[in-house]
């Protein structure tokens, strides 16, 4: 049972990594990257490393995304159009 969950999570991980590099829209890329970090937090749990999952959840989803969104706001791209 545990094996299947791990394989599904890894497939989602790789799909979201590819998704980040394919999307034209910056705003969407950051949101998919948030998903990537939360999947990562769950994987740390399955790898029996609870410290890492708390840190990854707080850091990956919490702080990293806030920094990216603020940079996008500063770059007036919050509308998400790919700028030249």
């Amino acid at each position: 049972m545990r094996e299947t969950i791990q394989v599904i999570l890894i497939v989602f991980l790789i799909l979201s990594a590819i998704g980040v590099s394919v999307t034209k829209n910056l705003f969407m890329a950051v949101i998919v990257f948030m998903g990537y970090s939360s999947i990562m937090a769950v994987i740390w749990l399955l790898l029996e490393a609870p410290d890492l999952s708390i840190t990854q959840a707080a850091v990956g989803v919490g702080v990293d995304s806030i920094l990216f969104f603020l940079t996008l706001k500063k770059i007036h791209q919050i509308k998400g159009t790919e700028e030249g």
């Binding site: 609870p50 410290d51 708390i54 840190t55 707080a58 850091v59 919490g62 702080v63 806030i66």
Partner: peptide
């Protein structure tokens, strides 16, 4: 318990944000 300086610090930082 699991966690520690780094995890707790980030959560506190997140709360302040």
């Amino acid at each position: 318990s699991p966690g520690g300086g780094f995890a707790g610090g980030v959560i506190m930082g997140g709360g302040m944000i």
